[in-house]
Design a binder for these strands. Sequence first.
RNA 1: GGGCCGCUAGCUCAACUGGCAGAGCAGCUGACUCUUAAUCAGCAGGUUACAGGUUCGAUUCCUGUGCGGCUCACCA
Length: 505
Amino acid sequence: MTSRADRINRQRLEKLEGLYDRGVNPYPHRYRCSHTTEQAIALLKQIEENPTEEKAVEVSVAGRIMSHRPMGKVAFLDLRDGSGKIQIYCHRNILSEDSLKLLKKDLDIGDIVGASGKPVRTRSGEASIEVKELTMLAKSLQPLPEKWHGLSDIDTRYRQRYLDLIANTEARDIFLKRSQIITAIRQFLNQRGFIEAETPVLQPSAGGALAQPFITHQHALSRDLYLRIALELYLKRLIIGGFDRVYELGRIFRNEGLSTKHNPEFTMLETYQAYADYNDVMNMLEEMVCQVSRQVLGTDTVKFGDNTISFKPPWQRIELRQAIIEHAGIDFEEHPDAGSLRAKMAARGMEVDPEKGRGRLIDELLSTFVEPHLVQPTFLLHHPVDMSPLAKLKPDNEHLVERFEAFAGGMEIANAFTELNDPLEQRKRFIEQQKSRQAEGEIEEAVDEDFLLALEYGMPPTGGLGVGIDRLVMLLTGQTSIRQVILFPQLKEKSTRDKGERQES
RNA sequence: GGGCCGCUAGCUCAACUGGCAGAGCAGCUGACUCUUAAUCAGCAGGUUACAGGUUCGAUUCCUGUGCGGCUCACCA
């Protein structure tokens, strides 16, 4: 049986054999490029503007053959590298003999080649290289996706991201921007005297958030370890150690559901600034996002779905309590315990999990009724202490903390507070949290004594911030699924078992 | 985990109510000295995701499985 795929593959293998037979290495070790395709085009323009300059200049470029237009004695190929694309013009009378053979007999779309020759403009005005030497740099044995429609099968795009990057320039742009966004964030923080830190990914207890962790095992010490679910507790240790401004941009792992807004591993920025409070952090965040947007996109206004979002400060500031009253019609201050709030929510026709504590119920109100409405950048302020075990109380209200969450495009993008630095109060909060987790039937976690010990040495007043980088990238690139901004998102394992069984039988 | 939708050539997609599975790109052969989604002539390429069922006949209807998407739940 020969399927089309087998046949294409076989033909390419035959071409590969042919190359070896003629003593041509289809996978040479290196190639000297004098220019990227972008630079070669710039050079051509320069030559055109200064016709007095040396005309015999030659360049060599390298890249992947993206299309092939043979025209009898001439042929046009499109060559793409990391910087862009240039047309290469092959004329029978100009090409070397070996290059001509290569072009006629061995070349496929998808091959990676080097081309050297003179930068020229063709009659139709296309910047090109008139090639003398064409060199095979890597023979491709697989056909590329369709050239006009690109690769649209979403599963293939994620599983074989390299094909997505080759075939879909939009995908390339997204990841290019992602890189630029992260660079811009680093610049912003570095300029303000922040120090970048690297803290453990493998932790003896996964603290700093309430998500389910991934568990792994260390053989050498025969103990279980957790993949971190937040950066918080280690960065605070650095504040205690005297680094007054620290940040980490790192991968964190949460063993929870997948959705268009959740991937089990994602990138988080956390910053901690000594002697600052949540107001300072709020100002910094809106400035940072606005500046990053301007730097990367050249604008502080982006299109997201049907909306246009402006990151220009100041962002709207709303009391969390007011936002929930407005959108859900429930005032959680009137319901100081979980039972009462649950009854109120049930009375509104909501299905309520009887195990959830008050903090989680309020969070449910927030994400169900309020979050979808927060399209323009908005700070929600002053969360109940029940849902904020690491934040400092407001001086004038013993139920609320100095905290904000930032939303945009209907997504939470950041979370920040004035950090709790009272070690005795922190211990109390941890124990309360442990109790309520028990009540909610979740895995019980030990109190992080090592962190409490650190706090006991004294942590200065500190403003802390966490930003979901993937979601920020979504906003700035107009993507509505987190998988489109993560190069290799988590997917279900592709099962080959049934296939194998069939082949055996 | 639940609901809805999808899976046809390497890729992008057709195929009316159940009646011979079809294009374009990519590939192969040939023509062509400026093309750029090159063009023209020809060739080849299919386990219609998989396993069953109904039927004279299934890509089409039914059941199950796999994979995926969306969505709900879960997720401070």
